[in-house]
């Protein structure tokens, strides 16, 4: 039973990597937000499962927090933002998508190679998830580089944070509760600030983007 649950955690970690790739190559913003919500949901399941296996009750709390914040609140906020600002662009990549995909693949190879020796030292729950989580973080980085618009960049940042969270759950049975609460509040505040910021940008220039060129596009 325990072995099966452990394999299930591995599977969930793999699915979250899959969703990170889906985020990386998705063109439509609203679909990206949905992918992010799904990835967070996978994370919630992983965390509760890890909590059930190790008997650490604070993991349940962190799973509940993740659910409220990342599966419900942030996606709803982002969707509202999209609707209010009428942002649904289709082309915002700096690099062509197949090239981005191959770069992502290289990052996965790199992350797995780096994580392998570390994972062998660790005696934690599911040490295999470290490599997958690291790959998720790196893909978040890549996405922040290859996307030129503000919304995908924020989603990339959030996806990266999901990767860190997954690493924490899989390798060290979750971060200390204080740290977790701090990060959760930080992320929420960050999103709120971004919302206000984007609204103001939008009223100043019609298309909020990271570059000046982007601004006079639409």
């Amino acid at each position: 039973m325990n072995a099966l649950a452990l394999q299930f955690i591995d599977l969930l970690a793999a699915v979250s990597l899959l969703l990170a790739f889906a985020l990386l190559i998705q063109r439509r913003f609203s679909a990206m937000i949905d992918f992010y919500a799904t990835q967070s949901l996978v994370l919630v399941i992983t965390t509760s499962l890890a909590g059930w296996m190790t008997g650490q009750r604070h993991l349940y709390l962190s799973a509940a927090l993740t659910f409220v914040l990342k599966v419900v609140l942030i996606p709803v906020l982002m969707h509202t933002l999209l609707r209010r600002l009428h942002l649904d662009s289709t082309v915002d990549t700096v690099v062509k998508l197949p090239t981005t995909l191959l770069m992502g693949l290289l990052l996965v190879i790199f992350a797995f190679g780096v994580a392998r020796p570390i994972a062998q030292l660790s005696t934690a729950l599911a040490s295999g998830t470290l490599g997958i989580a690291l790959a998720g973080v790196l893909i978040g980085f890549l996405m922040m580089i290859t996307r030129s618009r503000a919304i995908p960049q924020v989603l990339a940042f959030l996806a990266m944070e999901n990767g860190v969270f997954l690493a924490a759950t899989g390798v060290t049975h979750g971060m200390p509760m204080v740290v977790e609460l701090g990060i959760a509040v930080d992320v929420l505040i960050g999103i709120l600030i971004l919302g206000v910021f984007l609204s103001h940008l939008h009223s100043a220039a019609p298309s909020p983007g990271a570059t000046a060129r982007e601004g006079d596009g639409a």
Binding site: I25, L97, P98, L102, F112, G128, I132
Partner: peptide
């Protein structure tokens, strides 16, 4: 290309997790 990346990741995960 997406299919290819998925297939390669499958293989990498097999190597990483041994399953």
């Amino acid at each position: 290309g997406i299919a290819f990346v998925l297939a390669v990741i499958g293989m990498l995960i097999h190597i990483l997790l041994g399953a």
